[in-house]
Design a protein around this nucleic acid. Structure first.
Length: 214
DNA sequence: ATCCTGGGCC
DNA sequence: GGCCCGGGAT
């Protein structure tokens, strides 16, 4: 079922080629800044950091907190997120940088990431998949909503790990690649932003034949 | 007025 | 489980 949804979304929208970023560290920063925030506003914050040449963990650490806060203000929740960015940057530096961290086992990195204050499951898995190229699926509010509406899940607030396991089990049965993991999450975001919104636009939805909403 | 690719804290 | 954080676009 989940695999068919992926195929349908892929043929509808085509490849998304996520994550939009120039470096793995930019992915990490974006993953934190986009927490409960429109990506449009995240782009403004990232542009501010770029124009000050701060998109490096060491630079984030040496930036005075008030300046960091003001630069990321467009992304909202700027006081907590400034601290989150410093926590994450410190973690990366202490682990010898992203390239070194990448060599470690997925579950080892995930456990360590989740101990960083400000890095929850979705943010950790986004970093693992898109910055460290690890095979793990990212669940977000869109995926929860979409799967519930399609009838794949019964509860609207199905626990994160249940959904992740659901997708990964089926994807592995189909010998899915890391690219498939990346594309599916990106496609879910695109579909839910444009069609399967809070108030869905079912008339123009390509998934409606297999959707419980109809 | 509502919504946005959540997470921490109680 | 509920509440708070928050600017920007619509």
């Amino acid at each position: 079922m989940v695999w068919k949804v992926y195929q349908k979304l892929l043929s509808t929208y085509g490849k998304q080629n996520w994550w939009p970023a120039e470096t793995p560290f930019e992915v990490c920063v974006g993953a934190v800044l986009t927490q409960n925030t429109n990506w449009q506003n995240v782009e403004k914050a990232i542009e501010n950091l770029k124009s000050h040449n701060l998109l490096f963990p060491e630079k984030i650490l040496s930036t005075p907190l008030p300046l960091l806060q003001s630069l990321i203000k467009p992304a909202g929740f700027y006081k907590q997120k400034a601290n989150y960015l410093k926590n994450l940057s410190l973690f990366i530096v202490e682990n010898g940088g992203l390239e070194t961290l990448k060599k470690e086992n997925l579950q080892t990195i995930r456990k360590k990431l989740l101990k960083v204050k400000g890095i929850g499951r979705e943010t950790a898995d986004s970093i693992l998949l898109y910055a460290l190229n690890k095979k793990i699926f990212v669940i977000d509010a869109y995926a929860k909503r979409l799967f519930y509406r399609l009838g794949i899940t019964q509860k609207e607030n199905e626990p994160y790990e249940n959904l992740r396991t659901l997708v990964e089990t089926e994807f592995n049965r189909h010998n899915a690649s890391i690219e498939d993991y990346k594309e599916f999450h990106a496609l879910i975001v695109k579909h839910c932003k444009e069609i399967c919104r809070k108030t869905p636009d079912c008339k123009i939805c390509n998934l409606k034949t297999s959707c419980m909403l109809k």
